[in-house]
Design a protein around this nucleic acid. Sequence first.
DNA 1: GTCTATATTGCGATAGAC
DNA 2: GTCTATCGCAATATAGAC
Lengths: 202, 202
Amino acid sequence: MENNTRLKLIEVATELFALKGFAAVSVRELTVAAQINVSAISYYFNGKEGLYEAVLIEQLSPILQTIGEVQKNDSTSPVAQLTLYANQIAHIHALRPLISRFIYSEVTNPTEYGAPIIEKHLSQVYQFIDATLREGIARGYIREDLNITYAAVSLVGILNFYFIAKPFVSKLFPLPEHADSESEYVAHAFRIYLHGIMNSEA
Amino acid sequence: MENNTRLKLIEVATELFALKGFAAVSVRELTVAAQINVSAISYYFNGKEGLYEAVLIEQLSPILQTIGEVQKNDSTSPVAQLTLYANQIAHIHALRPLISRFIYSEVTNPTEYGAPIIEKHLSQVYQFIDATLREGIARGYIREDLNITYAAVSLVGILNFYFIAKPFVSKLFPLPEHADSESEYVAHAFRIYLHGIMNSEA
DNA sequence: GTCTATATTGCGATAGAC
DNA sequence: GTCTATCGCAATATAGAC
């Protein structure tokens, strides 16, 4: 296995960076956890920053893919597209359980290498939601008095907040721990949101 | 002015810790920005950690106060109480524009001194929302098929996410910059949420 | 591709003068 | 209460042997 070291390093770094943040993790800590040599970080990633960048890119990769898939279905109604998007959110968090750690960490305390990566990905998300809400209003499904930007932020907030709050809230309340609590939450939250923005109800 | 140094240190530390996170800020950086001497941090706060703790306590102070005030109005309806809470959220963010930075930063990457402070404050918030939602269901205002924990997380998420996303989203979309955009957002988001959880509508 | 050994820099904290 | 000077340590990075 030639690039085993590289993979092990990515794996360990993903967990440690997610848990403690970039600045709080030392290269020694990483190499001890990965049971490899210090110099491997420079050898494979050209330093700690390069390793972090690689982790971040790998973590965020499902986002653009997902938005692309949802946008292919632009023949369906805006409401169906938003529903599809919500389902994909649950899917992303199941695929990358630590993704929200990285995103929020970068949004609150941006690093110079992380900021452009995050920006590239999240702008795609906002543009999709913005356009879909506009179309929903134009077609009469969604209330006209919505401020689109606020409504877009509301949607991202209500769908994603759970995943950041989860380890914290589960200390206070016993949270459902079964396999698909992610999609259960997302379905629940999206129902509240959709109910809240729709013009009328069937 | 005897404790001017202390105040200046709190002020500068609040901004730098909010912007870069605890681990990424050095004591030298703080003392240069505050135009004071390195040793003042140990003298006043017994080190960098003590300074961070002091900043955190001061930042979070409006939370418990707010929850206390809202709970005094327990004679009004649960819906009115939730509305009051939403208004207080806007108020808190206006008072402490950086509070969400500290909270999210501690939730994603907890420090050993910050974690107990955050936990103490946020558990109060969740307990209040949980109890109020329960009462709203019992009195028939709110849909019975809500999962209370999910609905509580949804409320916190939809109300607060904006304040973390704001500096980021405003790069993508021009956000309203007028004096009271905080309460405008909160009112907007809360309307979506309330609309989404209510049993019927007047 | 992996190792040891080390260079270099910056960190947080404090002793002791004023 | 504020300063300078410095201690001791841990950080990242890399040169060079294997």
